[in-house]
Simulated assay, not measured.
Amino acid sequence: MRKKSLLLIGIFVIIASLLSSCNQIDSAKVKLGLKNKDFQYIKQGKVKKVVIQNSRDSGYKFVVTNPVAISELYDILSDAKPVNSKTSLDPDYIFSLYEDSNKVYQQFDYVVGLDKKDGGNLYSKDKYYIVPNRIDNDILNNFQDLRTPKDFNKLYYTFINQCIDKYRADTKNNNKSIGININDDVEVAKYIFSSDLDDFQKSLPSNVKLLKNSNDACDVKETITTTGYKAAGYADEYRYNNISYDSIYKSIVDFYDNTTKETKEYYVIARYKNGWNINISDKKSSDF
């Protein structure tokens, strides 16, 4: 009996030592700015619901009520690094933390990916944090519809540039500025992220820019409208995963010259076979 008592005491001492060590490590991280105590209210059970709203597609809103998932969000947010400024990029999601079904306890804007200038990618009116990609990997990727399609960026931004090249060659409008309008491309809005747009803008020549608003001034406006993605065996269903031999992406791209009031329209069909083969035509084919 005495041996069992000593064993239990030893176990309790070890557990207490481990907990003490963990607390000391957490305190050190807080002092170094690598951890924070700002989200203790989540740990205390004050958050009953988290609503995740895509900022570009109002139709994509997800509600999290599972206590395990909310606890996982606490673990991620408590490891966020507090900083003094926020990213200059537009938010990709809005996180609303509800105290009950109707009362918002706190709300944050969130930018997917880390800011290259160390600005906070999760922020409220007066709090800014750098949050690792665990929100993307552990939270957002649990929603199938939010997973970015394979090769999406490579395909999408490539054909936008190719359409510009074709338009300039067809119209000889080499000197006019072009504004790219993807704000109304609702079919893929949920897959467009600010960090990707920033990288794309930096790759463009000086007389081509992404329009922040659809009606921003430019000589020629290029508007992209995705009409669908048809995968093998699914005649009319839009599918963005499981790319196969017969996978097809389709889009209509309009160029509107604000000076001449002329419109030039292109039809884009991209087929996948060991890579994307993009075809751009000013005539609508029978298989569009």
Rank of each mutant, 00 (worst) to 15 (best):
S88M: 13
K283V: 13
G59C: 08
L19G: 05
L204G: 03
K43F: 08
D138E: 10
R134S: 09
V186C: 03
K81W: 05
Y256H: 14
S58F: 05
K117T: 12
K49F: 05
D184I: 11
V188H: 05
F288T: 00
Y129R: 03
D257V: 02
S195W: 09
F108E: 00
I182E: 00
K49E: 10
S124C: 09
N36D: 03
C22T: 14
V104T: 12
F62E: 10
N241W: 11
I192H: 00
P132K: 15
K116F: 13
D216C: 06
D199Q: 11
V220Y: 02
V50L: 08
D79L: 12
Y74K: 08
N258H: 12
R168S: 04
A16E: 00
S206P: 00
C218A: 15
G10T: 05
S85P: 00
F95E: 00
I192T: 02
G10P: 07
Y157G: 02
L114I: 15
K125C: 01
L146S: 01
K37G: 11
S71E: 04
L155F: 05
P149N: 04
S251R: 06
G10K: 10
F95K: 03
L197N: 04
F159A: 08
S177C: 02
Y167M: 04
L18C: 10
S20N: 14
L77V: 02
I130C: 01
K221P: 00
G119H: 06
I243Y: 04
S195P: 00
S5F: 12
I25G: 02
Y93I: 09
I252R: 04
R271Q: 09
L89E: 00
Y93A: 04
K35Y: 05
N137L: 14
P149Q: 03
D75K: 13
S285I: 11
V104P: 02
I278N: 00
V47K: 01
F193W: 02
S244G: 12
K202Y: 07
L204K: 08
S5H: 13
T227W: 08
L211W: 06
G119Y: 05
D236M: 12
N133P: 01
Y272L: 07
A235Q: 14
I130M: 10
P205S: 12
D196H: 12
F108N: 02
I248Q: 10
T227M: 10
I42T: 02
S20L: 14
Y249I: 04
G59S: 15
